[in-house]
Design a protein around this nucleic acid. Sequence first.
DNA 1: CATGAATGAGGCTTCATTCAT
DNA 2: TATGAATGAAGCCTCATTCAT
Lengths: 231, 231, 231, 231
Amino acid sequence: MPSTRRSKASAPAARRARKGPARRPRDAERSRSAILAAATAEFADKGLGGARVDEIARRAGVNKALLYHYFGSKQALFLAVLEAVYATIRGAEAELDLESVEPPEAMERLVDFTFRYFVEHPEFITLLNSENLHRARHLKRSKRVRALHHPLIGRIAELLQRGVAAGAFRAGVDPVQLYISIASLGYFYLSNAHTLGTVFGRNLRARAELEARRLHVQEFVRGYLRPEPGP
Amino acid sequence: MPSTRRSKASAPAARRARKGPARRPRDAERSRSAILAAATAEFADKGLGGARVDEIARRAGVNKALLYHYFGSKQALFLAVLEAVYATIRGAEAELDLESVEPPEAMERLVDFTFRYFVEHPEFITLLNSENLHRARHLKRSKRVRALHHPLIGRIAELLQRGVAAGAFRAGVDPVQLYISIASLGYFYLSNAHTLGTVFGRNLRARAELEARRLHVQEFVRGYLRPEPGP
Amino acid sequence: MPSTRRSKASAPAARRARKGPARRPRDAERSRSAILAAATAEFADKGLGGARVDEIARRAGVNKALLYHYFGSKQALFLAVLEAVYATIRGAEAELDLESVEPPEAMERLVDFTFRYFVEHPEFITLLNSENLHRARHLKRSKRVRALHHPLIGRIAELLQRGVAAGAFRAGVDPVQLYISIASLGYFYLSNAHTLGTVFGRNLRARAELEARRLHVQEFVRGYLRPEPGP
Amino acid sequence: MPSTRRSKASAPAARRARKGPARRPRDAERSRSAILAAATAEFADKGLGGARVDEIARRAGVNKALLYHYFGSKQALFLAVLEAVYATIRGAEAELDLESVEPPEAMERLVDFTFRYFVEHPEFITLLNSENLHRARHLKRSKRVRALHHPLIGRIAELLQRGVAAGAFRAGVDPVQLYISIASLGYFYLSNAHTLGTVFGRNLRARAELEARRLHVQEFVRGYLRPEPGP
DNA sequence: CATGAATGAGGCTTCATTCAT
DNA sequence: TATGAATGAAGCCTCATTCAT
């Protein structure tokens, strides 16, 4: 019949004969997370457009069809990846315990965490760049993501208040602007490390360069937040 | 396309008759720059991977084969675009005349120029992001680009020196780090405006938001550069 | 670059080396009609769903991409085929010259033409069945097709009038109903020849059976059109 | 699906305890007929090629694997559907009791039944069209189906004889041809209602149109069967 | 200089079917 | 009896690139 698929043949025997603990154990949860991990890597490496569904399935060790079974489409998978990486960074951030130390140290912690997180999670940067190229089309469909960011701004606002009250920080700083600036100083450096490194003739991902940058960023934020000298 | 085509058979004859060997000496240049402009727009809009050669040719009003005739490949065209946008921004920067004003004002000019340039040239941001996704593979092949950046750093270094000497700036600031930071504060805000806007629930490209950001960046840089209070 | 295609290699030399008059002579019109012919055959053979674009391109001797270049999509190609077959049958019908003979003979001509056309153009039947399975979705988009059918009904109406006036036909016959009935008697027999042949144990496409059916249809229509006997 | 599933673990135990070896003796039958009903609807809606096994299982509220357990393949299921619909129409036909009324009325009943059955069972038409597209490949494998049609022709032959004897019908009519014609006049009208409706600009499935067609068909058959006027 | 015709090589997605429990 | 997990084999469509004129 023309419009129907032909039947298959072999392969199951071969699979059964493999070694030990059965490679694909019909564990739905494991398959799902393998796909998500593979997709994160692939999307981070090549962007949404450049990523290949074939490659994601291969990396995950599953059939392409299973990927569609679980996630529906390449784009839906991309959104799932975005939600996952956002949840991860915000989750780690939430454990910083900024409330229990003095404002200057708390701020230093936040700056350090942010910079180091970007260094250690380059996928975060490429994924967000890809999403921005697409004008946040996917993220806008997500309800989970916005909820993740309210607490972050709340904590920064509180930290600023404490610092002002203690005479450690200048007054009048918008917490959203500040957070964006803190992120900027690390994000842009890393996101654009290849072009900046090329035009300035430096390897910005070298260990010493990274450390120098981290200190510069710390000093930059600290310097800005210094209170105005009294009259 | 209609506007760039001449009527069927008459024009070429007229052309050939004009003045000897130079055949249509202007049209070649015009086609070339039309392609470049179209490519800039298309690459900026969709990234390198997402851009379509068909679409570039269509926007330029020329045949696809002509595009290949002039540029050889999509990637070579992309590099030509990158070189062009770098040349443009560095050229504009060079006209800032930072040397003829006091250091604080010169710095303010530089910060303002950088921020406004990014706002007014969104293509610059997307193109660089695309090139970074590809690990600056194209730019590394370019000899012209590195040469463009030497003067920039030199001028910033000189400006810092003048400022320190005048007691207006803190000492010990690396001009490369500073330039990267100045760029960061605008670039990241704009490059990630879609995702940031989504997660923070603000339209970061609104006129008022842009102005607020510009002032924040100015203050951020100024605050950081303040000299340490004397003992 | 991940998101771009790799370059090709050979093949053109092989093509040039082939025999005589260059198989693909860059003749747009010829390619178009080859595709249309191949598509007609393939759609007729397997239906819209069962037809394979690959197979159509193969039958037409062109690349699949060219097919998309000319027709846009499988469905648009299907509509082009439908329009072509409708135009063909209505065109042939228009040449019947029903006006110049006596009504009974004219009617006989029309019935004969219709039956024979279906016999000789089995693709017409399968294509229409396919389109009906899809609820005429494609045809509804066509503006050309409706215009083709106005004249047909007009001519049948006129023929009926002439026949009634001459005392040869009964009065009060709706030309649309009549046309549908004439078509029915051949169409259904042929469209369902496989199942009818199976359940009745007869080969309905055998020459003798076809001839018997044709005569039956002629007699059926003639019998129905006989005027009521006077009181 | 929810309504066909029992609560998690309790039900099976209760079942097993019921009365020895018969485990859930009714559910098997119920699943089977649910699948058949779902398949009938899906095949009728989309044709054999367009129907989706997933969708059939979903409509039936069972797992796809169960469908394969019962029917073996999509094609075998299609044949089961065909056999079922043939059995249904022939069964209904058998109850017409044509023998107990005068020939003209009996014929009218047959024509009416046939027309109305097609109107009320559109699935019958699409299923047969699909099977004919596939050249009756499935039906040919069925032994049950041919047996269903012998009686039908026998009864029509008998009816014709009675009618001729009574002077109500013309002589020399082949019962198979007549049956095919009766079916034609309704089947084609309905099978091709979408394309005919489109090209003639009428909604042939509107109630009034259907009634007009039914009367036309009645009159068409009656008119044809009128005896020739005596000399 | 310029073009329309043509194509090979994928890319995303779907689907009938089987496996392990 | 019944299921959720898994897959090989296409199917439609796109795209960078080349050819012939």
